[in-house]
Design a protein around this nucleic acid. Structure first.
Length: 471
RNA sequence: GGCGCCGUGCCCGAGUGGCUAAGGGAAAGGUCUGCAAAACCUUUAUUCGUGGGUUCGAUUCCCACCGGCGCCUCCA
């Protein structure tokens, strides 16, 4: 196994990755509250985690990846009231949409878990925190007492004193310290509620991720991931309550991975500001592969500025990769295939692996992809080298592995599937048109080309013959 | 106010204490070609926000300043 380096928010440095258990990786990512259609910012996280999972698998690990749905909270309750339906129906509706969007982007779905289906684990955890003196009960609410956990602030790099200095938290008289946070909230009339030792209520936001990750992955699982905006307070609180629960004998998670925000007009894309591009909407305009490519052009921790100009650039860049891929495929098809020889591709594969091993640097990995593309095109342009189809096949395999297997970007556009019949038909059409060109009947030859173009089939003439591709 | 991140060519965006500062998009010129498209080659940063410092040597480390952003409240 190659040495994977990843950036750990907890230590603010890059570290060699060593899993809890050899050969196995456990990952937990905070999912979303399904109460509105997902936007591009959500999808960035989804795609980043998909890449992480894919690359770990390429390194030979068995990956167990769990993600939650916060299917009960204030916003869902409000939404249910607005839509005159139940909270369960709201959560179900938007969870489905989310899964559908993720699936469309070529994401391999994680093991989803829901809060409402794991109430027992949550209550058990809160109960133990109360028993152990880390939490206290007030009027049916349960709060975690931050002062009981001396390491509070270690993830986000802030201290309780600092936070009190800049206090903007509204003071709740019933809390012992302003920073204390709710583990359990007493039910208000008309709200969905669950029985607990403290009366009817529902979990606070932070406790669910701790309870679910510990239940499904166990203490000291490998990677805990989420958007950067979750570092404080969400992940800070998760650490406090989880490590308190574990009696500070084990760390909660070994590595903390956070992806950067997507911005729109210099501001974070977020529902609260209304600056949002729903992924549904974007999917109407761009095929999933282009959206995915766009998300991968920047390192995952860097903020990504959303713009249609950038998407157009991504589209053009992907087009370049696909053209080379299809030209090479067509060439090999004509030769009846070849045994792959990977020696030409190996330096680029090496470059690609190094980039991915360095904290999943997809932007850098794409440079290797384009080196392969150039090499492929050069081979195709040079008849004497083109006599080495084995090397072409090797490059083609490398390209396919990089783009499709690892990055998950489809090299065949969403178009009618290429069938053997279509291949044969195109073979004939090209032969007929060649005959016309030989007889200098260019009007007819051009008309064939134009008509096919209108159907989405591109013909390209070169000294080595005519090739076709869908595009 | 506190904590943290960032500022690289026309645009986007990797990166490193010293090797030609990746790659993509765009533009211009060339090659190929019946034309078109694609492709290939060349050109667009003696320079990496500004000013100091450390060092034999800094875009890369430290400090200050300017500019942008994130978090401190729900947030992917």
């Amino acid at each position: 196994m190659a040495e994977l380096i990843l950036y750990n928010t907890l230590t603010r440095s890059e570290e060699p990755f060593q899993p809890r258990e050899p050969g196995k990786v456990t990952i937990y990512a905070c999912g979303l509250t399904p109460q509105a259609p997902a936007h591009v910012g959500h999808m960035r996280g989804v795609v980043v985690m998909d890449i992480v999972q894919r690359w770990l698998e390429q390194l030979g690990y068995a990956v167990h990846f769990v993600q939650n749905f916060t299917d009960i909270d204030d916003k869902i309750i409000r939404r249910a009231q607005e839509e005159h339906t139940s909270t369960a129906a709201v959560a179900e509706k938007y969870s489905r949409m989310y899964i559908e969007d993720a699936h469309a982007l070529g994401v391999r779905l994680p093991h989803f878990v829901k809060v409402t289906e794991n109430m027992d684990a949550i209550i058990e955890m809160v109960q133990r925190l109360v028993e152990d003196g880390y939490a206290y009960v007030v009027d049916g609410d349960v709060y975690f007492e931050v002062n009981k956990f001396p390491e509070y602030g270690k993830l986000s790099g802030r201290s309780v004193e600092e936070m009190q200095a800049g206090a903007r938290i509204e003071v709740d008289e019933r809390k012992r310290n302003p920073e204390d946070f709710a583990l359990w909230k007493a039910a208000k009339p008309g709200e969905p509620a669950w029985d607990s030792p403290w009366g009817k209520g529902r979990p606070g936001w932070h406790i669910e991720c701790s309870a679910l990750s510990l239940k499904y992955l166990g203490a000291a699982f490998d990677i805990h991931a989420g958007g950067m905006d979750l570092i404080f307070p969400h992940h800070e609180n998760e650490i406090a309550q989880s490590e308190a629960y574990l009696h500070c004998e084990q760390p909660f998670a070994r590595y903390w991975l956070h992806w950067g925000p997507v911005r729109l007009r210099q501001e974070k894309m977020s529902k609260s500001t209304g600056l949002v591009v729903p992924i549904r909407e974007l999917r109407q305009q761009y095929e999933p592969a282009v959206i995915r490519y766009f998300l991968l052009t920047v390192h995952y921790r860097t903020p990504l500025e959303f713009s249609y100009e950038r998407l157009e650039e991504s589209k053009a860049a992907l087009e370049r990769i696909r053209t080379a891929y299809q030209r090479a495929q067509a060439f090999l098809r004509e030769r009846g295939g070849a045994t792959a020889d990977a020696t030409v591709a190996e330096p680029y594969l090496q470059q690609f692996r190094e980039a991915m091993n360095h904290d999943f640097n997809t932007a850098q990995a794409l440079a290797a992809v384009f080196e392969v593309v150039r090499e492929l095109n050069t081979h195709l342009n040079t008849p004497e080298l083109a006599d080495a189809p084995a090397r072409l096949a090797g490059l083609l395999n490398a390209l396919q592995w990089m783009m499709e297997t690892v990055l998950g970007v489809a090299l065949q556009p969403d178009a009618p599937a290429q069938s053997e019949t279509l291949n044969q038909l195109m073979h004939c059409v090209i032969a007929w048109r060649q005959e016309l060109r030989t007889r200098k009947l260019y009007d007819l030859a051009d008309r064939i080309r134009d008509d096919l173009k209108a159907m989405g089939i591109v013909l390209e003439d070169s000294p080595q013959g005519t090739t076709w591709r869908i595009g």
